[in-house]
Design a protein around this nucleic acid. Sequence first.
DNA 1: AAATTACGTCAACAGTACTGACATAATCCC
DNA 2: GGGATTATGTCAGTACTGTTGACGTAATTT
Lengths: 175, 175
Amino acid sequence: MTSPAAGKPIRTAITDEDGIDFAIIELFFFAYRDFTSDPDQILADYGFGRAHHRVLHFVNRRPGLTVAELLDVLKITKQSLARVLKQLIDTDHIVQLQGPRDRRQRELYPTAKGRALALALARPQSRRIRAALEDSGTADRASIERFLEAMVNPELRAQIDIVPAQTSGKKNGDH
Amino acid sequence: MTSPAAGKPIRTAITDEDGIDFAIIELFFFAYRDFTSDPDQILADYGFGRAHHRVLHFVNRRPGLTVAELLDVLKITKQSLARVLKQLIDTDHIVQLQGPRDRRQRELYPTAKGRALALALARPQSRRIRAALEDSGTADRASIERFLEAMVNPELRAQIDIVPAQTSGKKNGDH
DNA sequence: AAATTACGTCAACAGTACTGACATAATCCC
DNA sequence: GGGATTATGTCAGTACTGTTGACGTAATTT
């Protein structure tokens, strides 16, 4: 049961000693797990995974973004993106257009099919958020939004707020 | 560039039409990504991954939990847990004790080494949370906690709150 | 014309998850 | 007592997502 040189078991639960906020750490894990479980179920019907969802999401949010910009947002390598993006293009969820200024670039746009899937995936997530905001009562949307934004690395906050609420895509002022 | 029967590109960004809360959906993605990046860096030094972190976290939070209980909290299969748990035991971060009542069970406890690593991993996460709470100003801790808890599937909320704040482990009233 | 950039692709590998099958020991129940 | 069930462990195969490294091509920059 216990190996030869095994350390002694600690029988007391870890406490909030050192001011460690275990409650929220744990809550964040559970919340994110369930948050992603809704779209995961839908994606399975398409043979897609979470990576496809992320690509689809950002292409719909910033139509016309280039491959390099997408890589920068997702923080993955191009080899990792390649497989996923190829599948989304082959299944006609996303199309590539040659960049108008720089013909080396590939601007990514959703098709009607890709737009529809993005919406279908976001719907249960949005429903969950709305319900959580209601259930938690007092918490107003803005304060949750501010908290989540503050959780993001400062250098990377530029990636957020790129979408100007209503107006159309092609508005990438970064890089 | 465009394949034969490709759909037409949609050039407008997806809107908050249909009442979809894209802002918070996206924020949640960025926040969780950065939230996990801190411990990921530390884990790399040990040759561990995120799965090790989760096991270590819950064994420290509920010392004496059984393998079955751990599987239930993590919502993974025993085959998936096996490798990770074995490594943590082999490296003397966790020890197993035969269950006192039911000798088939294996109660999991952290060693001093495992406790120390769990704390080291939680520290930057807690720091990030504290900073985010401060930065976001108004948002009081309790409302964030309530929101995150409300994001979790109702059936699974029992898993939370198991740890009674200060008292020791062995208090698993579920199942 | 040479260097750099944007993108694509091939190959190998790691980490985490899954399903299915089978083994062992301990407990439960008739 | 003895068969069924339960808790755990393990073997084998597979999928998805990510990595590094290398190389190729076309377009732009210098």
